[in-house]
Design a protein around this nucleic acid. Structure first.
Lengths: 139, 139
DNA sequence: TTGTCAACTAGCAATACTTGTTGATAAGGT
DNA sequence: ACCTTATCAACAAGTATTGCTAGTTGACAA
């Protein structure tokens, strides 16, 4: 995703407002690689801005996602995770703690077999690797 | 998964009971390829056995899943889907109606890149193709 | 068959995550 | 500075699933 400043411009130019709460969220997401949940972002934001509400966090994340600046991922961990990395990539997910790691490998061989493809209009291909991460293996 | 009769035996031999409700659910699942949700199974079961409760459906599905007779899939459609096909396979999911189709292709090339693999203990690899199915494309 | 007991069922309550609603507030263009 | 309108915060509601409990039923053995 773009820098907090650029996102502020983008919000303004799409008729949205660039509020302090939103800037706070932009900053938290910028450069983050941890795939945080809405709750995690809320907790961090609240540390800097105690009055912010969870609703505002969800709203801003949804706006960012619909502008294509972040990805909303459902990795089967019970809640959405938000990824500021919008390049095409895949994920390695811990089945114990739910943490996710980006995988940049491209898998060009992964295609819908012609026999099944039929009239299906393909929009995305996701690969999810599941298992236990290093820190969950030695507790 | 096995036949309803075999599943009845299996349930008894694992200290569970083979009730009429369970047999009803076994029969609905047997040979099904539609990846139904719990609600969908509940609706079908209720047509045959009006007193059955949603709770019982969930319980039986969870039992079947923990016995390894069905797969509980989270394909990002908002609710779990249950698949009597327990061979290793992947899925083609419609982002509009949520329907899922099995894909039997193996993708041996799909592996965690060594640089990332580290201490990660891999347990499964899922490929999900998303898009719009034939019937959702012409409404 | 019948007795016994653990497991099951139905119905409802509760949970977790996310979105809807609303009066008050504040941003931003003019 | 003003006015319009999006946004804020708090609360309520929605969706999918699981927890709880009193009464019921299946399985096994005598």
């Amino acid at each position: 995703m773009r820098s907090p400043t650029e996102l502020g411009e983008l919000f303004r130019s799409t008729g949205r407002k660039n509020t302090a709460q939103r800037q706070c969220i932009f900053e938290l997401l910028h450069g983050s690689t941890a795939h945080p949940t809405a709750e995690a972002i809320f907790a961090e934001a609240r540390a800097k801005m105690p009055s912010i509400s969870l609703r505002t966090v969800y709203q801003t994340l949804n706006d960012l996602a619909s502008l294509g600046e972040i990805q909303q991922l459902d990795l089967g961990t019970g809640s959405f995770r938000f990824d500021p990395n919008i390049d095409s990539h895949h994920h390695l997910v811990c089945i114990e703690c739910g943490s996710a790691q980006d995988i940049y490998a491209a898998f060009p061989e992964v295609q819908v077999p012609p026999a099944v493809a039929g009239d299906f209009e393909l929009t995305s291909t996701e690969v999810v690797f599941r298992g236990r991460c290093a820190s969950c293996r030695r507790p």
